[in-house]
Amino acid sequence: MCARFTQALACEFVATVIFIFIVLGSAFKWPLQLPSVLQISMAFGLTIGTLVQAFGHVSGTHVNPAVTIAYFVGNQISIVRSVLYVVLQLLGAITGAGIIYSVTPKDVRHTLALNDLTYGTNPGEALVVEIILTFSVVMCIFSATDKRRTESRGNAALSIGLAVTMAHLIGIYYTGCSLNPARSFGPAVIMGKFSGAHWVFWLGPIFGASVASVVYNYLLYPQKLSIGERLAIVQGFVLPEDEGRSTPRTNSERLRT
């Protein structure tokens, strides 16, 4: 059990490093070729889809503190796993940003694709955009990975990747589209530049993801769990394979004796 948990933590860190490395690189403005909104959006979506397919069965491939918090709010992962996931996601984001920064020419990497408000967008408007887009993506995540669904769920990795792509197709124009505090935090640390609106890229995604979790897990498709079972999940008294990007079973067989 400890080995499996350690593997999940390692996967979360590695997946976040890869994610940040690729998505930041996709947004760099090279002298002979400027990136398009479609290119950047596809890079984000394809990277997430690939990582979910590669690591999802081990760690759930959250690679996003907002997603991890949403799973905790939805009573699907323990508090210990939640805290460690967030810490490793932030460390992975810093590492990924540092690597891409170190291998990229100075005149190309100068902004490191930092999230910031664009085209006169104010913090309030940006916050609304981040909340709505993160809400839509996290709703897709819960729906696509819910093992209680009896009908075909399609391919979860593809569905999540397309949801991320969709969000970036509009979000880039407003904020560069964060949806992920780690994605905003990593490059800001490497560059030593935190904009006055950096809080938007934490509050927006976390609030949007938490609302999506409440709507899906408590209103639309509530889990039939006793208080004891819910407390056991929070405390970590569940089999490690039940945690991650999946919905817990609804009987006492989930609990350790």
Rank of each mutant, 00 (worst) to 15 (best):
V234L: 11
L219N: 06
N122Q: 06
P181Q: 10
N122D: 15
A157P: 08
A167V: 08
N251A: 07
L24D: 10
W30Q: 10
S82W: 04
L24W: 05
A232C: 06
G56N: 06
L88Y: 05
S159I: 10
I132D: 00
R149W: 15
T118A: 12
A232N: 07
F28L: 14
A182R: 02
I206L: 02
F21S: 09
G154K: 13
G244T: 08
A97R: 03
N251H: 07
L84G: 08
L51H: 05
V211G: 00
G161P: 03
C2N: 15
G74L: 10
P240V: 08
R230Y: 12
A197I: 03
S78H: 11
V234W: 10
T118Y: 14
I20V: 11
T121P: 11
L9Q: 13
I160E: 09
F19P: 12
F142N: 01
T6Y: 13
T118P: 03
A163D: 02
T16E: 03
A43H: 06
I227F: 04
I100H: 09
V138W: 00
L34K: 15
V238Y: 00
V86Q: 01
F72V: 06
V63G: 04
I77N: 12
T150P: 02
L84Y: 11
S82E: 01
A188E: 02
T118K: 15
Y85M: 01
G204P: 02
G96L: 12
A54K: 08
L84S: 08
G244Q: 03
R254I: 15
C177T: 10
N122C: 09
L169H: 10
V17N: 11
G74F: 05
L133K: 07
A182F: 00
S102H: 12
G96D: 05
L114I: 12
A167W: 04
F207W: 08
V108C: 10
F28R: 11
R109C: 08
A156E: 13
F185A: 12
V129N: 09
Y101V: 04
I131S: 01
G60L: 05
I18P: 06
S41Y: 00
L239Q: 13
F185K: 04
G45E: 00
A54V: 11
E12L: 06
V137W: 02
Y221V: 13
Y119S: 07
W202G: 07
G244P: 07
Q235C: 03
T145S: 12
P31M: 03
Y85R: 01
I99N: 09
A156S: 15
A10W: 13
Q235P: 00
A197H: 05
G60H: 05
C2P: 01
N180S: 05
I172M: 03
L51E: 09
Q7I: 07
S152A: 15
S36Y: 13
Y119W: 09
T121Q: 02
L158G: 03
Q53S: 14
Y119L: 03
L203S: 08
D242W: 04
S78C: 14
D107I: 15
